[in-house]
Every structure is written in C-alpha cells, then in structure tokens.
Design a protein around this nucleic acid. Structure first.
Length: 671
DNA sequence: TGGGGTGATATTTTT
DNA sequence: TATCACCCCA
C-alpha cells in the first residue's frame, strides 16, 4: 500500500499526548495505523523504541507487526522495540520480578495439558469421582482468572455448592502451582497485574520502561488484560488501543468488549477516532455487512464505505443436502478459477465449526483441488516434543512435578504406578518435590529395594544432567538427553513403525535446532530457562507460517478467519442452528453470532457466496434446515438468491423472525 | 502396555 | 452418526 494515510488515520497517528481509542472497521488499515504510529513516536516524538510496547493477541500478529515496523523504520531505528503478545509481555515482567511472588528463577510454564493434569489429581484426592469434571474445572478457574477473581474471592462469592467446591479446588490448584514453581497461561497476565498493583517499585520500573503502549484487537481483551494495560500506563495514560466492537467474537472465552466503553469512563480525556474507509472489499459486500450488523445494538455507530465500486452481487446458493453443497462448491471453484484465471489461494471456505471441514476436505481431494486447513495440530502438541520439553523443564526446575510425571517412565524405567504413588505420598508428607523425594534417604523405608534402586538411578542421572546443563550450550543439552535416554530406540520399540519414528526424530531435530537458534538470541543470554519459557508460548512453529505460501484453497472457521482477507469467500452452512449456532440463539448470544457472520462477510475482497443446505445430518439423523436468519438481513439489492421465488422484503422478514423464515423455506423448497 | 471395545457427546481457541 | 477418550484385558 503506497497510498498516503487518510485524514482520520493521520489524526490517530499524531494523537500522542493522551489516551486514544481507534475504532477501526474491518479492512480500514488498523495495522498500518499502529505501525505508522510507532514510527511517528520514534521519529517525531523522540521516543526511544525501547520505551514503546505494542501488544497483540497472537504470535502471528506480533510477527507481522514486527516485520511491518521494521520495513518502515529499518532494522536499526527499531532496535529494542517491544512487540509482543500479552502473554510474553507478562512473561517478561515475571522473569524480572517473580521473586516478589515467592517464585524462583527457572519457573515452568504449564500448558493446558499440564494444568489439566494437576486438576485431575486434585479432583481425585478430593474424592470427586468424575474424571471429566476436570475440563469444567479448568474452564471455571480460567474464567475466574480472566476476571481477576482470586481464590479467596471465588470462595466467598460462590453461588452454590458446586461453585464453592470448585473455588476450594481453585485455591488448592494455585497452591500446587506455587509449589511446582510454575505459572499457567492465565497466570502470565494475572500475576503481573498483581505484582504491579502491590509492588510500587515494580510498577515504577515497568511504567518507566514502557512509556507508550499500543494494543491491537482491543475488543478481545479480558478483564485481566485491561488491568494490565491500566497498571502499565498508570496516570500518564499514554496509550493507543485499536479495536472494533463489531468484530468481538470471543466473549465466550472471557473477552470483555465492554472494555471499549469502560475506557471513556475510566479515562475522561479519551479521544475516539473512527476509521470507516475500507480498502478491502467492494461496496456491495460492505453494504451487506453494514446492513447485517445494524441488527445489533451499538454505542459507537460505524458505516464502512469504499471507493472500489459495487462489484458483483453476493450470491445465496441453496443445496439439497450437505453432499450436494460440498461438490457444488468444489465445482464452482474449479470453474471460476478457470474463467477468471485466479489462483486456488484466492479462495476461502469459511464455516462455523471445525467438524464442517471434513466433507469439504473429501470433496476437494476428489476434485484434486489443493487445500490447506487452518488450525488444528500444533507442533507443540506432539508427544515427542512435549517429552523433550519436559526433560528440559525438569533440568531447569526440579520442582516441576508435571514434567517429572510425564517423563519418569518415558522411555520406560520400570517405575510403576504404585512406586509413584508411594513416592508422591512421601513427597507430599514432607512438602518436597518428587525429584527431591527421589534423592532422600528416608525413602528406603517405603520402597522395595529394586524400586528404590531405579528411582535412585534416575535421580542420580538427573543430577548429572543438571550439572551438565549449567555449562553446556542449550542444543547440546537437548541432544544429550535424547541420546542418553535412548529415545529413538524407545520410539521404534513402541511404534514399530520406522517411518513414523523417523518423522518424530525429525521433529525433535527441528526442536533442537530451534533451541540452538533461540539460545543465540541476545535477550536469551544462552539460558535454557529463558529459551524454554519462550518456546512454551510459541504455539505454532514459524516454519508453518512460511508454509502457507502454496497455492491452496483456504479452509477455516469463521473465528480463525478474523484478521485475514481473500478475494473469493464461500461461507457455508448458512443455516439456523449452525450459524447462528443452536447453542447461541438466546437474546444475548445471538449478537455474537451476528458479529461472527459480519466477520465472515468482511473477509471477502471481491466476491462472496453464502451457501446453505435444505437437509443435513445432525447428531445421527437427517434434519430439515432453514436458511440462516442472517441471510434475510442482507440488503435485497446487493444479493442474488439463486432461487427467484425468494420474497423480497428483508426488513419485514427480519422483524417477523423465525416463523416467517419457515414460510420462506417452504417457498424455496421447490425440488 | 497397547489395542480394542464401550459409552458418552456433539461451538468457537490462544497462549 | 462419528469420534474420542477411557478402561480393561490379554
């Protein structure tokens, strides 16, 4: 984009003295505003890059922003600039100031699986039978943390017995994390907020370090993230937040879009600037998006407009069933691509739920259309990666019982469940970690000689490795662990599949390479603990980000599509019960469904096809489907319904709601 | 210890 | 209906 910034964009860039909220509509160039603003702060306002922080939600967004700032400022002028996710920002604070919380350096970061393991353990010892209560508990605790509710508050505010019980487990869970010298993901925000609030010197340091803060996707912040922003910017309130309330689609996991409105209450001097010129889509697409979102209540009004011309009308296509829908869209992509000489990568298929991807995968394969499914398997979900990470974590943090339990028998060391139970009881009694328990003399009274031997042997080995880890380069430590545990032999033995083993070893080699690369970074200082912490926050390997350069049709959920754009978009499964989803049809949640639909529409640059099927298999049997109510909310003049019998007064129809839609379906059902 | 049978369950997901 | 997690047995 070489065009100059438009007037509101310029205003947003130049307003630097007080708090600023930029309401940036879809495709209105918000990243551009943020990057230009960073450049402005450095070049025109004399801020050192090291005193500016830009915060995003995902690593991908952070990477993108970093590279765009670098392109603007050049690598030298941007030195020290802090572009990071909320979580890595929190991590940095903890790495410096964890001691105030009673944590020791080398602390572990627990991923969702580690956390679930701890909670299951708690549930078991609390006598709560259900294993899968673990998931509910995990959800509950995470919600409390996002809302900045401490265990004590949760206990006193509990609404019923179940919640009271959960709150007690929450308190217990936090005690365990502390004992393990570990933080979970939510803690990476919550505990820094706590530190900043309680420790004046810590607050002063960070407020001084970060003189200006910019936050992207502000509508997705939860309470703890908002508190972090407030603590960091303090009374000087030098910040820019950029967001769009119409694209708030994460309330279900704790996001508080009302944080947008809270800003003007908490900061009376707040300036609000709207970006409404869209550089992405045709006017018809934007009019449709505007019309749809007008169905939601608004505190800030916003009308997207564009100079790109009307373009093609949107199309609503109806299929008899899911199979027909899928083959039809595959066929359309092939034809359209042929006629318009486009690339496969210009097309995206967007859906509400992941399960909807499957039939499309099948059809695309059959039509030999290359595709890429976004989301799903993270590099760090692979068992072998987790194993090696657990070994390394244990070397850095011997209190990490979760890591210990993961690898004590991987590869096999003949240490069985009952031995571990006794070890755990012993450790629990003395309030020491499992690793520490392994090395204690008193253990002899509890374990049979043979088992004691094995435990001792492991403990001895761990000692040796820990000593080695202190002086050897990080990558060597990792290689040594793999070598000494005979990990490859174990893989081969357990999977009996040389090809699979080879793949897994390749993943491990990749991890080792990463460890080496990261350790070489200045800020890592060659420290294994730093490298591990950093790595635990990296969900997906960078390599995969590079990989999507291929010419492939993109398949993803509407959620995953946020922030992306495509020339030609297919929104599929546009039916009542799917979008809006059955579970989100109440008055409060329907608005988020509408925003989800809005996000989908605004992904399209040139063409948008909305597809629904009249019959679909759902939970076993085939049900008849009605077209999504959102389809009826689109402007008649900009949408072509494949079926000309469609009645033409969308406003009346929207008002009459579902009953009317049933009639509409009957009118359309002419096959 | 790993595979197979069984039973529950069915949005959206990052770090 | 299909998948997935878990438990139990060989």
């Amino acid at each position: 984009m070489k065009t100059p910034l438009n007037p509101p964009q310029v205003q947003a860039v130049r307003h630097v003295d007080g708090p600023l909220l930029v309401l940036a509509g879809a495709g209105s160039g918000k990243t551009r505003v943020i990057t230009h603003k960073i450049a402005w702060l450095v070049r025109e306002c004399g801020h050192a890059p090291g005193n500016i922080g830009a915060v995003t939600f995902t690593n991908k967004a952070a990477r993108e922003m970093k590279s765009r700032v670098a392109a603007l400022l050049g690598p030298r002028d941007g030195r020290g600039l802090m572009v990071s996710t909320f979580h890595s920002l929190g991590l940095r604070i903890l790495q410096r100031d964890h001691a105030h919380l009673g944590y020791r350096s080398g602390f572990s970061i627990f991923d969702a699986e580690d956390a679930r393991g701890v909670m299951r353990e708690l549930l078991r010892s609390a006598g709560t039978d259900a294993d899968q209560d673990g998931e509910r508990l995990q959800w509950r605790i995470s919600a409390w943390k996002s809302d900045m509710v401490s265990p004590e508050q949760a206990i006193s505010k509990a609404a019923d017995d179940t919640e009271h019980h959960q709150a007690l487990l929450y308190a217990e869970y936090q005690r365990h994390l502390q004992a393990y010298n570990a933080f979970d993901f939510d803690d990476l925000i919550v505990r820094p907020v706590q530190l900043l609030a309680e420790q004046p010197d810590v607050r002063e340091y960070w407020q001084n370090r970060l003189r200006y803060l910019l936050v992207d996707e502000y509508q997705d912040t939860n309470t703890s993230q908002y508190d972090l922003l407030r603590q960091l910017t303090g009374v000087r309130a030098r910040f820019t937040v950029v967001g769009d309330d119409d694209q708030s689609i994460y309330a279900w996991r704790g996001a508080r879009p009302e944080n947008l409105h809270r800003l003007s209450e908490d900061y009376p001097t707040l300036r609000v600037i709207k970006l409404e010129q869209n550089y992405r889509s045709t006017a018809r697409i934007l009019r449709s998006a505007n019309a749809l979102i007008a169905g939601n209540p608004h505190l800030f009004d916003k009308q997207l407009w564009s100079t790109l011309g009307d373009g093609d009308p949107l199309r609503v296509i109806r299929s008899r069933d899911a199979d027909t829908e899928v083959t039809r869209i595959a066929g359309e992509i092939i034809q359209h691509r042929f006629h318009k000489r486009t690339a496969f990568s210009d097309y995206a298929i967007l859906y509400r739920g992941n399960h909807q991807a499957r039939p499309f995968e099948k059809a695309l394969r059959e039509h030999q259309i290359p595709y890429r499914i976004n989301g799903g398997n993270s590099f760090f979900d692979k068992a072998e990666i987790k194993d090696l990470m657990a070994y390394l974590r244990l070397l850095v943090n011997p209190d990490d019982n979760s890591a210990f339990l993961r690898i004590i028998n991987t590869p096999r060391r003949q240490i069985g469940a009952s031995t571990l139970e006794k070890l755990g009881a012993y450790a629990g009694q003395r309030d020491i970690s499992l690793v520490a328990a392994c090395g204690e003399m008193g253990l002899g009274e509890y374990l049979a000689e043979r088992n004691l031997q094995r435990v001792r042997e492991f403990s001895q080995w761990l000692d040796d490795m820990t000593r080695m880890a202190a002086r050897e380069p990080v990558a060597n430590v990792a290689r040594r662990v793999l070598h000494e545990t005979d990990y490859e032999a174990w893989l081969l033995e357990t999977s009996r599949d040389p090809v699979r083993t080879e793949k897994r070893m390749a993943s491990l080699a990749e991890l080792v390479e990463w460890l080496g690369k990261l350790a070489a970074r200045e800020e890592m200082d060659g420290r294994l603990d730093r490298v591990l912490a950093h790595l635990s926050l990296m969900g997906i390997l960078d390599r995969q980000a590079d990989d999507d350069g291929g010419d492939q049709v993109q398949l993803m959920t509407l959620h995953a599509a946020k922030g992306l754009e495509f020339d030609h978009v297919f929104m599929v499964g546009m039916e009542e019960g799917l979008l809006p989803h059955q579970a989100s049809i109440d008055a409060e949640t329907i608005e988020e469904e509408r925003r989800l639909c809005y996000v989908g529409i605004t992904r399209a640059r040139r063409s948008l096809t909305l597809s629904w099927a009249a019959h679909r298999r759902r939970a076993g049997d085939t049900v008849e489907c009605e077209p999504s109510r959102f389809l009826a909310e689109l402007p008649t003049a900009d949408v072509v319904w494949e079926d000309p019998t469609r009645p033409v007064d969308p406003e009346v129809r929207a008002a009459k709601g579902r009953a009317h839609l049933a009639t509409l379906r009957d009118l359309l059902a002419n096959d």
